[in-house]
Nucleic acid binder design. Structure first.
Ligand SMILES: Nc1ncnc2c1ncn2[C@@H]1O[C@H](COP(=O)(O)OP(=O)(O)OP(=O)(O)O)[C@@H](O)[C@H]1O
Length: 745
DNA sequence: TCGGGCGACATTTTT
DNA sequence: TGTCGCCCGA
């Protein structure tokens, strides 16, 4: 590790900073994460700090893993094990001391869906009208309170029933021996506050604490840090206020901007050289972010030679955006560059669809990050629920989920009765599954419930001290889950079956990677997992993800798509805030845009579409206001005026990279597993103008209209209002009508 | 009890 | 456009 060669003087100073708090407030691509990584390596390698005495916090599990890998490479030895997200850290801490807070060390971690199920139980028990008090709303209140470290009955709740709901919900969580996500932080704080001995143990242990992406910490997380790190502690925080994009989740920039007040002795280091991007990319991003008023001005320059100009494409619709992405991918391939060097970034997950379709049609391998996670699939959740019951049969949420999967003749009514019986005995459902406690049930129901309890007990015995993989296998076998799928006629059963096999592989893979084959370890991993984790850099595929997921990453080439009013900035950020809490939402959208642009190393392509299908309706939106500040050097492709009937944009487009597109004749390959790259086989061809194609798809087809009824499409043409159809209605005769108002049959 | 069918509803962003 | 919840008939 040669610090002089690999770091600039400021970075080096930060890495060498001897002791006391350290704040690095610096712009995108200035090497903040690099500094943290090097500093950890330096502390361990040069200063002899025991790895176990270093705590490093990252924003995602993936970032944590990458940091660990990099430190290991620098060090040539094992990295500190306390490199994780706040949540993973909290889980680990609580696991060790759970008894102090009234939980067992085998507590479960409930995710949003589990929490919702539990919440529904609570509202039902409270007799709250779900119309008037939606569970999601109540849980949002609870989460907000928890983020502000308010326990039940400690305020932080806005409206009446939510407060009582919080208390009962929390009580139920405890009885289930489970924590929800925000409890991981809140209870960690509580643990350290209420038990000074524990606090001082960890204060002593963590000689050094380092936090990446500090601009996105919420009050509970910051509190946790402040507990661990008294004012003179070796706390190193790193961030960029221009990249604060999680205020909607409770993150507060003032933590970073006010850091010097809370840690008065802190050293402040500024990093001003950007090592990631070309001058063009940097200039563009800087101009755009300069549109914000509430920000810390930062200088950012680059010594890199000029690269390709930033491009801005005006396109007709989202399908054209998809084709643009395909074109970028194919020309990378022609140049012999890896597809993994290209990322498509967008504001909302829903936008991925158009890109996926285009990539599928043209056989370009791609990887979608986020959206529906593997572990959110119903069959996987069912299997995981069984696994969790092995570890903790008190989890009513899991028990109720699977007691009738596969169908065992235990329906809603019986389940409700079981809940009541357990409540009456003041115990959990599993504990009430005995002959005498169920005596109130009719014979057949009682038998079924008891045999389920027997099944669980047998499984528990059998899986005692077995590896996670083994548990998965046995659960799937003994519960009859696989048999249920095998005998199912339905189309989806096959896919589900494969997904469950995949779960076993995942358990195996995790065991190998982590070196811990236990069920407990696997379950914890699964609970904290996000979809980002599936996406390892090695896949030779284009990456598709939201701007939020892209934070901290970098790609040679970035397509930032959907730069339209209403999308970026998102329309919900444009609405005047009713309660004053979302002020500055627009500035956050701009920061999001900045984050996206600054992911690009060499080439940045921006695009917007004049019209976009949303829920099947067609929407038209003007280009994003963020484009107003683009510098002059941006190369604009496609008419800046809304294209009326002309196809200018397309002609220009298809000439562009010298790559021509055409769909393959054979039908597209079967639906890929999300998050999996697929092999590809694209054939060069020619792009048909989009407008024409739309028409082709309609002509000769039957459509239905609310008042005119059924009819045959005779002709179609693209107008500025959308696609206009000439339809021969069976009853009403020939009409000219916008495609928006009819349904294809 | 269970499955299919149908209508309502929804899209910000995620640890 | 797709999912989820609800209702109904078997
Ligand atoms: N001194 C340096 N010499 C060479 N490359 C560097 C140097 N500092 C940083 N880099 C490179 O610049 C890129 C950006 O660094 P890094 O990701 O650490 O920046 P960052 O400030 O964390 O970025 P962001 O805030 O945008 O996520 C990385 O590829 C990194 O390897």
């Amino acid at each position: 590790m040669d610090l002089d060669r690999e770091l600039n003087p400021e970075q080096k100073a930060a890495v060498l900073h001897p002791q006391g708090p350290l704040l690095i407030l610096a712009g995108a691509g200035s090497g903040k994460t690099r500094v943290i990584t090097y500093r950890i390596a330096h502390l361990v390698g040069e200063r002899g700090v025991p790895p176990g005495n270093i705590l490093a916090v990252t924003f995602t599990n993936k970032a944590a893993r990458e940091m660990r890998e990099r430190v290991e490479r620098l060090l040539g030895a094992e990295a500190p094990s306390w490199i994780s997200t706040f949540h993973a850290f909290g889980a680990r801490l609580l696991r060790r001391h759970a008894e102090l807070l009234g939980y067992s060390r085998d507590f479960l971690i409930y995710d949003e869906d589990d929490a919702r199920r539990l919440g529904r139980e609570v509202t039902k028990a409270m007799g709250l009208d779900p119309q008037q008090y939606p569970v999601e709303e109540l849980l949002a209140q609870v989460e907000r309170a928890k983020r502000n470290l308010k326990g039940p009955g400690e305020g932080g709740i806005r409206f009446g029933p939510a407060s009582a709901f919080y208390a009962r919900y929390q009580e139920r969580l405890r009885k289930n021996d489970a924590l929800d996500f925000s409890d991981l932080i809140r209870l960690s704080c509580k643990l350290l506050c209420d038990f000074p001995a524990v606090l001082s143990e960890y204060q002593r242990r963590f000689e050094h604490v380092l936090v990446d992406e500090f601009q996105d910490t919420d009050p509970a997380q910051y509190r946790l840090l402040r507990l661990l790190c008294p004012p003179e502690a070796n706390l190193c925080v790193v961030g960029d206020d221009d990249q604060s994009i999680y205020s909607w989740r409770g993150a507060e920039v003032r933590h970073i901007l006010g850091f010097a007040q809370d840690y008065p002795g802190c050293r402040v280091v500024k990093l001003e050289q950007n090592y990631r991007s070309t001058p063009q990319v940097l200039e563009t991003a800087s101009r755009v972010i300069a549109g914000n008023r509430e920000r810390h001005e930062k200088t950012l320059w680059t010594g890199a030679p000029a690269g390709a100009p930033v491009e801005l494409y005006a396109l007709s619709d989202e399908r054209a955006e998809g084709e643009l992405a395909v074109r970028l991918a194919l020309s990378r391939r022609e140049r012999g560059e890896k597809l993994s060097g290209l990322a498509v970034l967008y504001r909302t997950n829903a936008q991925s669809r158009a890109f996926e379709e285009a990539f599928r049609v043209f056989g370009v391998p791609y990887l979608v990050v986020g959206g529906v996670r593997f572990f959110d699939r119903a069959e996987i959740r069912d299997a995981v629920a069984y696994l969790r019951l092995l570890q903790n049969p008190k989890s009513d949420v899991d028990l109720l989920r699977v007691i009738n999967v596969p169908p065992r003749g235990i329906g809603d009514t019986t389940r409700e009765r079981l809940s009541e019986i357990a409540a009456r005995h003041g115990c959990q459902i599993f504990e009430s599954l005995t002959e005498e406690r169920l005596s109130g049930l009719r014979r057949p129901e009682r038998e079924k419930a008891l045999s389920f309890a027997a099944l669980l007990r047998a499984l528990r015995d059998e899986c005692q001290n077995k590896s996670a993989v083994e548990c998965v296998r046995r659960v799937l076998e003994k519960t009859g889950y696989l048999k249920m799928l095998e005998s199912s006629e339905s189309e989806q059963a096959q896919g589900r079956y494969e997904n469950l096999q995949e779960l076993a592989s995942a358990a195996q893979e995790f065991a190998t990677l982590s070196g811990d084959p236990s069920l407990a370890a696997f379950l914890e991993h699964v609970s904290l997992l996000t979809d980002l984790d599936g996406a390892r850099g090695e896949a030779e595929a284009v990456t598709l993800m939201t701007l939020h997921s892209a934070k901290g990453l970098e790609f040679d080439e970035v397509l930032l798509a959907g730069l339209e009013e209403g999308l970026l900035p998102h329309r919900r950020s444009l609405k005047e805030d009713e309660d004053g809490t979302r002020r500055g939402a627009l500035e956050e959208e701009r920061r999001l845009c900045y984050v996206g642009m600054t992911r690009a190393r060499k080439r940045l392509v921006l695009s917007y579409a004049w019209q976009r299908a949303v829920f099947g309706r067609v929407e038209m939106n003007p280009p994003s206001r963020f484009l107003d500040l683009l510098p002059g050097g941006v190369r604009r492709v496609g008419g800046m005026e809304e294209p009326a009937e002309d196809e200018e944009a397309f002609e220009e487009l298809s000439d562009d990279d010298g790559v021509f597109l055409d769909a393959e004749d054979e039908p597209p390959p079967p639906e890929p597993t999300r998050g999996r790259a697929r092999p590809s086989a694209a054939t060069p061809g020619r792009v048909r103008p989009k407008t024409d194609r739309d028409g082709q798809n309609w002509i000769g087809r039957f459509v239905a209209h609310d008042t005119f009824g059924r009819g045959l499409v005779r002709a179609a043409c693209q107008t500025r209002l959308g696609l206009k159809l000439t339809v021969d209605f069976e009853d009403a005769g020939e009409k000219t009508i916008l495609a928006d108002y009819v349904k294809r049959l």
